[in-house]
């Protein structure tokens, strides 16, 4: 038998990660502290408000952005979660999702713009995105731990990575979809690249970018739940505990809470997209 040595792929990754963690330890510590404080104060702030007030505020917002049905959904949905005693974990999950989405979009949208403008960036970035999106979600949890330790910051970190691809993809798509004759009209009037981007391409790409943000939110929610495994609190934590204690009923309640949160977030972002689509009104 020929003895082909096994490729030490895992070792390489480990060594690489070790080097990176050593290198960036002070920076990651700083980021970690910052994010942790951010998450904690956001959750504390929301917990300080009486739940009924928060529920009314969210429902009013839903009404404005997405209409009456979504408003009713969030009113009854959140009321149920409060009643089931899941108010705090729901808020924790919501905060993690929103922070992760914010960061994912803040990084993803500019990357998407770059990929739309430059063919080179596109050719490098998009295969990486394909790769990232076929990687199982759990794998993203592992490198987060050496950087940030167990806890909510590692959860946000892996969630950002996991949820970013649609924000990039749909930003690029939205810009590339702008009709060629509109881009040409912008050029014919002597627009610089920047003027063309800001005055024509981005405004016309917004519905598509919003659809990307919607997908990012949904992915972030699913990842935040999984991230309970590395110490994220929230609804995922409830599910995790239910698994460990083999309590099916409690697991179902927490699962239901995730569904309610997903529906409300989805409907509200869809509502925003719908409103943006008809500039004439």
């Amino acid at each position: 038998m020929i003895d082909i040595p096994r490729l030490p792929l895992a070792d390489w990754i480990d060594e690489g990660l070790d080097a990176l963690t050593d290198q960036f330890a002070p920076a990651t510590k700083l980021v970690s502290d910052l994010v942790e404080t951010g998450i904690e104060s956001a959750v504390d702030g929301l917990m300080w408000l009486p739940p009924w007030l928060t529920i009314l505020l969210v429902s009013a917002l839903a009404w404005r952005l997405a209409g009456r049905r979504t408003a009713l959904l969030s009113l009854f949905g959140f009321a149920l979660l409060w009643n089931l005693g899941l108010w705090e974990p729901t808020l924790q999950t919501l905060v993690l999702v929103l922070i992760a989405t914010l960061v994912a979009v803040a990084i993803g949208a500019p990357l998407g713009i770059l990929a739309a403008i430059s063919g080179g960036v596109y050719r490098v970035l998009f295969p990486i995105l394909d790769f990232m999106q076929t990687m199982p979600a759990f794998v993203y949890l592992i490198p987060a731990i050496p950087f940030f330790g167990l806890g909510p910051v590692a959860a946000v970190f892996s969630t950002v990575i996991f949820a970013m691809p649609p924000a990039i993809r749909l930003t690029t798509l939205g810009i590339r979809q702008v009709p060629a004759d509109l881009v040409e009209a912008a050029d014919a009037f002597g627009s610089t690249k920047w003027q063309k981007l800001v005055k024509v391409q981005l405004p016309l790409a917004i519905p598509t970018i919003m659809a990307g943000i919607n997908q990012t939110i949904m992915l972030a929610l699913s990842m935040v739940v999984i991230a309970a495994m590395i110490g994220a609190q929230g609804l995922g934590g409830e599910v995790w505990r239910a698994i460990q204690r083999n309590e099916a009923g409690m697991g179902f309640e927490a699962g239901l809470a995730v569904v309610v949160l997903a529906m409300v977030l989805d409907r509200i972002t869809q509502g925003i997209i719908r409103n943006r689509r008809s500039p004439a009104n």
């Binding site: 009709p179 004759d181 509109l182 040409e184 009209a185 050029d187 014919a188 009037f189 002597g190 005055k199 024509v200 405004p203 016309l204 500039p279």
Partner: peptide, 17 residues
């Protein structure tokens, strides 16, 4: 392009937003 030309297109190419 800014100073010398104005262009009109077959399918108007107005900015819908």
């Amino acid at each position: 392009r800014r100073r010398k030309f104005g262009m009109v297109f077959q399918h108007f190419a107005l900015f819908p937003h």
